[in-house]
């Protein structure tokens, strides 16, 4: 048994224990914190499985944004769960046993874990991604080149989903549906002086780091999605510590409403531009016909910026909607 297997199994054991504790826990604040722990351990597993970009995203999203959203909702609603009655447990256990058994049986047909000769590996597209990409665009991080160029249309679709989800949250909770109750003056975290000073000092570094992640995604782990989430978490931190009013002075709602569609429009506009230049949709070769690799790099940079813009503004305005709801109750 190698060290790799041992570490894998221990991390899975921690994950399993955390998941079981989450199912048993009726206090939802604690369950939320354990969910954050679950995401963090999953991030470590992703690093072990060579998915550094994914680990980065999972750490930023699972530990940062989704925990803050869950906590925000808990503060708006009730944080104690009712006891699960026995009549609900038995059918669920049966379904889970049946589905798990079926999956486990079917897994026998999967290629062995870590095998180098799986259908996915043997497909010619692997060669394109890992070797051809170095001539096509010369970007070391193949995840970035696949994300933004080879499967750019796919990513556009994902960005549309993020955009739609953001708009839906704004419609459900946003300023348009706000009810005018007197604002309840709550304890703000800015009363803690140490926290106020430290988060004020850290704020520029977080934003700088987000920019680094955005523009360094070609060479190392990172890219538009991670950068967007880190940008948003910077503003979330500022909003948590100094209150919604202060952060909205820095980043007014109207600016967000312009920026949310702007990223998506930039992405789509780039596609239209490549069509007008005589290529196919999102074919960045046409941007620089004399030097297609430079054209590809330019296109990837623009697309990553567009992704970062939309993700950051959607996440920030989702956070604003949830906290704004709390302030107006």
């Amino acid at each position: 048994m190698t060290a790799f297997v041992l570490v894998n199994i221990s991390l899975f054991a921690i994950l399993g224990a955390t998941a079981l504790a989450i199912t048993r826990m009726r206090a939802l604040y604690e369950a939320t914190m354990l969910t954050a722990l679950f995401s963090l351990v999953t991030g470590s597993l992703f690093v072990l499985l060579d998915a550094v970009d994914v680990a980065f995203t999972e750490a930023a999203v699972g530990v940062g944004i989704s925990t803050v959203l869950l906590l925000g909702v808990l503060s708006l609603t009730r944080s104690r769960e009712a006891v699960t009655p026995r009549r609900r447990r038995l059918p669920a256990a049966l379904v889970v046993l049946f589905a798990g058994g079926a999956l486990g049986y079917a897994a026998q047909d999967l290629p062995p874990f870590g095998s180098a000769t799986t259908p996915v590996r043997d497909h010619p597209v692997t060669e394109t991604y890992l070797v051809q990409s170095q001539q096509d665009m010369g970007i070391p991080n193949t995840v970035t080149s696949v994300l933004a160029s080879y499967r750019g249309l796919d990513t556009l679709g994902e960005l549309v989903v993020v955009f739609t989800a953001g708009v839906t949250v704004l419609l459900l909770l946003g300023p348009l549906t706000r009810r005018n109750h007197p604002v309840k003056k709550d304890l703000v975290l800015a009363d803690y002086r140490v926290l106020r000073v430290v988060s004020g000092v850290l704020m520029p570094f977080i934003l700088l780091f987000a920019l680094y992640v955005l523009f360094h995604g070609d060479y190392g782990a990172g890219g538009g999605f991670q950068a967007g989430v880190i940008f948003a978490s910077g503003f979330v931190l500022y909003g948590l510590v100094f209150g919604l009013d202060r952060v909205q002075q820095v980043l007014p709602q109207a600016v967000l409403w312009v920026l949310i569609p702007l990223g998506l429009l930039l992405f789509m506009g780039l596609g239209v531009a490549t069509v007008l230049l005589g290529g196919s949709f999102l074919d960045y070769d046409t941007l620089r016909p004399d030097d297609t690799a430079a054209g590809q790099r330019l296109g990837i940079l623009l697309v990553e910026t567009a992704i970062g813009l939309t993700v950051a503004t959607v996440m920030t305005s989702v956070f604003f909607s949830f906290t704004g709801r709390g302030a107006s109750r």
Binding site: V194, L195, V198, L202
Partner: peptide, 17 residues
């Protein structure tokens, strides 16, 4: 450097809260 800054802050804030 960032661990040295953030982790005492978190512990301090938790204890104060």
């Amino acid at each position: 450097l960032f661990m040295v800054i953030t982790s005492p802050t978190a512990a301090h804030t938790l204890a104060q809260a």
